[in-house]
Each structure stands twice: as C-alpha cells, then as structure tokens.
C-alpha cells in the first residue's frame, strides 16, 4: 500500500486551479528556488519546525523525533512537518468537499514541493479521485522525466505548470537546477493537451523581471498553445517558517503594481 508524505492540506482553496478546491501539499522538491515560500516543502524527509515565540517551556517535546508523527505541541511551537497518508485516507478527506467541487467545477490539486516526485502514489490517488468524480489538477515545476507525465496524463484534468524563466544560467542560479528538461516537458505537454495546461509564472523582482528575460519568456510562450497564463506575485509569507527551520530567508523586493503590469504586458505580448 503506497503512502505519501503530506505536509499540508488546505480546504476551500480557490487559487490553485478552477473552482473550489482542496490542495494537498506533498513533501519533497528537486528545486531550491531562492524565493520559495514553503521551505518546509523542500526536503522529502519529515522535519521538525520550531516557532520559538510560541513555546511555553513545558518540556513535553523532550526527546521526540520526526517519527512521532502524532505528537501535538499544544502551544503550537513545535510541529512535525510531514505525515504519511494512504490513498484511501487522503481520498476520504478530499471527498468531504465534493459538493463544493461540483458546485464550481473545482476538485483536488496536488501541489508540493514537487508532487510528481511521488509519482506512483500520485497516479493512484489521481485515478481514485477521478473514479469518485472529483476533478484533478497537478501543480508542478516539471523537473521530472517525461514518463512521469505520461503516467498521470489520463487522470489529470489540469496541469499548473510553473515557468520561472527560460535562460538556463539564470534558472540554475535561481533554483539550483538547469531548465532544459523543464522547458522540453512543457512544450511536449502543451503539444499533447493544450487545453489542460495553465502556465504560472512567479514574478520575482531582481530574478526574472528584467526586460530581456521577460521578452525571452514571451517568445517561448509564443511557441506554445495552452489554456491560461497566470502571474503570481512574489510574497514573503514564508518568513516565519524559514525561522522555524533555522534557515535564512533570501529576501526579494515585493513586486509593485506597476511591475506586475509591465510583466503582464510583456508576457502576454500586449
């Protein structure tokens, strides 16, 4: 029985695909984006988050490890990040909001991390959801073998595909990996099911907002057929989680309305 490591489940989410959705966040990613807003999503292994300011010093957590996944810190200072779910357990939670999906053309979105790294489980849960009439979406950065896409193509209604930039060096500098495979996969995916691809570009000032890069992206997008393009403004909401993991957060400027407008214009070729 395959299980997946999940680090969050968000009900009544309406920004990760059409309609009202439940977004399931799978743990582990093979990118290390400098602007990542969920640092706890990156490592595949379970982790302990510690929010120092909430700690009341009760000492109950002495000696706990990531294996104690049912441990609850009652003041909310310590969190075991990552919990294993079977397909049926997860389906049970997802199905609770079916009436809301049906009302809005929504469904479930698997996100991460990189949910496609847990491909076997992903294929099973996607087909389980489809069986019960739940719409499905996969939020991916696309840095996986093309075969992984083939495995889930038949049971995924939408791909929310992240496009960070097209210049390979820039991609390497910003995410720790090159983007050849990512771009090839995106092209193939758009060729095979354009109506199901929603391309999402994070707008990160100082990373991908130079005129040159934006124009390159626009040119690349011009070669593709897809359903929709979404621009996601960079935000700093992950700050507390970086601290809780003992990590430094690299801060970028927040994109101004004018910058967002400029990016919209160039990327949409207006």
């Amino acid at each position: 029985m395959p299980t997946a490591t999940v680090f969050d489940i968000k009900r009544n989410s309406y920004v990760d695909g059409p309609g009202i959705r439940t977004t399931v966040f799978l743990k582990g990613c093979n990118l290390r984006c400098a602007w990542c807003h969920s640092p706890e999503s990156q490592r595949a292994e379970k982790e302990i988050l510690f929010y120092r300011d909430r700690c009341v010093g009760c000492g109950r957590c002495a000696g706990i490890s990531v294996k104690d996944e049912n441990f609850v810190c009652y003041s909310g200072a310590k969190e075991i990040c990552g919990k294993d779910y079977s397909v049926e357990e997860l389906a049970g939670i997802i199905l609770r909001d079916k009436v809301f999906y049906d009302a809005t053309g929504g469904g479930v979105t698997f996100s991460g991390g990189e949910c496609m790294l847990q491909e076997e489980f992903l294929a099973k849960i996607l087909s389980r959801c489809k069986q019960s009439g739940v719409g499905t979406a996969v939020d991916t950065a696309g840095n996986v073998p093309w075969e992984s896409f083939e495995k889930i193509l038949s049971c995924t209604d939408y791909f929310l595909y992240d496009l960070k930039c097209v210049s390979p060096d820039l991609h390497l500098a910003g995410t720790g990996v090159s983007n050849e495979r990512i771009l090839t996969n995106l092209s193939r995916l758009c060729a095979s099911c354009p109506d199901r691809v929603i391309i999402r570009v994070p707008v990160v000032p100082g990373f991908n907002t130079g005129k040159d890069e934006l124009e390159k992206m626009a040119a690349f997008l011009g070669t593709l057929r897809f359903k929709k393009l979404e621009l996601l403004p960079y935000h700093k909401m992950g700050e507390a989680k970086y601290a809780a993991l003992g990590l430094e957060m690299k801060a970028f400027d927040l994109p101004s309305d004018e910058l967002m407008e400029k990016c919209e214009k160039i990327l949409r070729g207006l």
Partner: peptide, 21 residues
C-alpha cells in the same frame, strides 16, 4: 486580491454548497 474572479467563484460555490447541504 488581484484575482477577484476566483473570489467571486468561491463565494458562489460556498452558497451553492450551503444550499445543497
């Protein structure tokens, strides 16, 4: 926020679900 359309869809969906339940 920027995506008002989604917020409207959400409100409509909550109302429909509320009625269906």
């Amino acid at each position: 926020g920027a995506d008002r359309e989604s917020a409207v869809t959400d409100a409509v969906g909550l109302i429909k679900g509320f009625a269906a339940l």
